[in-house]
Design a binder for these strands. Structure first.
Lengths: 253, 253
DNA sequence: GAGTGGTCTAGACCACGAT
DNA sequence: TCGTGGTCTAGACCACTCC
C-alpha cells in the first residue's frame, strides 16, 4: 500500500512517455522552442536514453518534433499543406508550377520505372530532376522520366543547361489526357535525403504519377516528400491547406 | 594491402545491412518465406541484435518485411493498391463502397475535427466507425463525423444497430458538391492498431476527407491505412493498381 | 572544445503464438 | 513449454554544429 504508481503497466514505457511528452508540448512549449537534451530528459523521466529516444522518434514521425544532430530537439511547427493534385490536369514544368528544375540527364531508368512507362528496360529516357520549395524550405525532390518517344521533336544538340527546358517544352506540346497517382510510405535514399536536409532513411511520402497522352503513358514522375513536415492535399476545393491549426500551439519569439 | 574490406565505412552499419538484406530478399527469398530469427541473423552478420533490428525496422517500413511477435519475420508481398479517390464524387456508405460499417455513436468530436467541420467544439456529432478490408485483410479503419445539421430528418428513436445505416441514408439524400482530401503520416492509436492487427504506434497513412454539401462541410472522415501494406491510389484512369510488381519476386509455395 | 543527437554493444526480461 | 519478436538498460564512441 502507498504504492501510488504500480497499476500493472501493460503499456510500454516509451508509449506512455510519448503521450506525456505530447501533452507537455501542447501546454508548456512553443513552436521553435528547444527541449532539454536527451540525456537530461532521460534522467528526468528515470528511463534509459534509448527508451526516451524511442518516444522522441515517434513524435518526430508525427511531425511534433524536429531533431538535428549537433543542435538539439525543437518543437516543430504544424505540417505544411502541399497541393499535389489534381489541381487541373497540367504537365509538369508548366508555368506557375511549384517546382524548380535542377537538371536533366539521359539514362537507362530503373526497372520499376520502365514498367511504369511501358518501355523497354534497356531504353534510355530523359530524367529531369526537380525540387519543390515551400515557405523557404525544400519539401520534395522529384525525378521525372520522359521516354524519347514522347519528345520526338527534341534537338539532338543540347548543352546540359538547355536539356531540361527543352524536354519540358516538347512535352507541353502534347495534349495531356489524364493522370494517375499513387502515394506510399518510403525511406529517403541517400541522395534525396541530402537534398531534403534529412538523414538517409528518413520517412518520406512517395508520390508516383503517370501522365497520359496519345493513349499511352507519356511521362512518369516519382516525387519524394518529407513525411515529417508535409501534409499532401488533393482538392476539388483546396481549402484544406489552411486548416489543421492545433489548439494550444503558440509561436516562439 | 590485402585489406579488402576497410574502405572507411562512413555508412552506418544498419544502413549497409539493410541494403544487403534487401538484395538478399530479391534474390534468395520468396514472398511469404520466413527468415531466420533475429538472434541468428545478428550473429551471422556479426552485429548486435539492436543494430540488426534497426535494419529490419526500415525494411518493414518499406513494406519488404512483415514481423509478428511469437511468430517470426516473413517476406512481405508487394503492397496492395487501394483506391482512395476521386473515383467519382460519392458519399461514404453508398452502394459498392469498399467499406464495412461497424457502428455509430453520438459524441463530442475532438477539437481538430470540430475545426474541420466548422462546428462548435462542444457540439455532439454522429461518429460512424467503418473498416476497409481488401484481399481478406483489414487495410484501414475510419471515423466518419456527421454533424446533426447534415442529417436533419434523422429519427430520434434508433437502436444502436439502426443508428449507422440511418445516418448514412440521411446523408445520401443531400447533394454532394465536392470533396477535399489530405494525406499525412501518422502512428496508429491503440484502438486503430488493434483493428489493423498491428502494434500501437505502427506507421499509418492518415487520409482526411471533407465532404461538401449545401455550401458547407457536411461531413468529414479520418481514415487510417496501414502504411506497410498499402499504396494509396488516386486515379483518373485507375490502372495503376495492377502495376508495381517487382522483378525477382516469386510466390512462396 | 563543448555539447548535441546518431550509432552500436551485450546483455536482460517480457508478451505473445504455436505446440 | 518453447521460440519468436518487443521492450529496456547502462554504458561507449562517433559525427556534427556552434562558439
Amino acid at each position: 500500500m502507498g504504492t501510488t504508481q504500480l497499476e500493472a503497466v501493460q503499456e510500454p514505457k516509451y508509449w506512455h512517455l510519448k503521450t506525456v511528452l505530447n501533452d507537455a508540448l501542447d501546454s508548456e512549449f512553443e513552436v521553435g522552442e528547444i527541449l532539454p537534451n536527451e540525456r537530461d530528459l532521460a534522467a528526468r523521466f528515470g528511463v534509459a536514453r534509448a527508451t526516451l529516444r524511442q518516444a522522441l522518434e515517434q513524435l518526430e514521425l508525427e511531425g511534433r518534433l524536429q531533431r538535428r544532430r549537433g543542435v538539439g530537439t525543437t518543437v516543430a511547427p504544424p505540417r505544411i499543406g502541399v497541393a499535389v493534385g489534381p489541381s487541373a490536369n497540367v504537365w509538369p514544368g508548366a508555368v506557375r508550377d511549384a517546382w524548380t528544375t535542377i537538371g536533366c540527364v539521359e539514362a537507362v531508368a530503373p526497372a520499376p520505372i520502365a514498367a511504369l512507362l511501358g518501355t523497354d528496360p534497356e531504353q534510355a529516357v530523359h530524367t529531369v530532376r526537380r525540387e519543390r520549395v515551400t515557405q523557404g524550405q525544400p519539401v520534395a525532390t522529384e525525378l521525372l522520366y520522359v521516354p524519347p518517344a514522347s519528345v520526338p521533336g527534341l534537338s539532338t544538340l543540347l548543352t546540359p543547361a538547355e536539356h531540361a527546358p527543352a524536354v519540358l517544352d516538347e512535352l507541353h506540346s502534347l495534349e495531356l489526357e489524364g493522370e494517375d497517382r499513387a502515394v506510399e510510405l518510403g525511406s529517403a535514399r541517400a541522395e534525396d535525403a541530402k537534398q531534403l536536409d534529412r538523414l538517409p532513411g528518413a520517412p518520406v511520402l512517395v508520390v508516383t504519377t503517370r501522365y497520359y497522352a496519345q493513349g499511352r503513358v507519356a511521362a512518369a514522375s516519382v516525387a519524394t516528400y518529407r513525411a515529417d513536415t508535409c501534409r499532401l492535399t488533393f482538392g476539388d476545393s483546396g481549402a484544406l491547406e489552411v486548416m489543421h491549426e492545433q489548439p494550444g500551439r503558440r509561436q516562439a519569439s
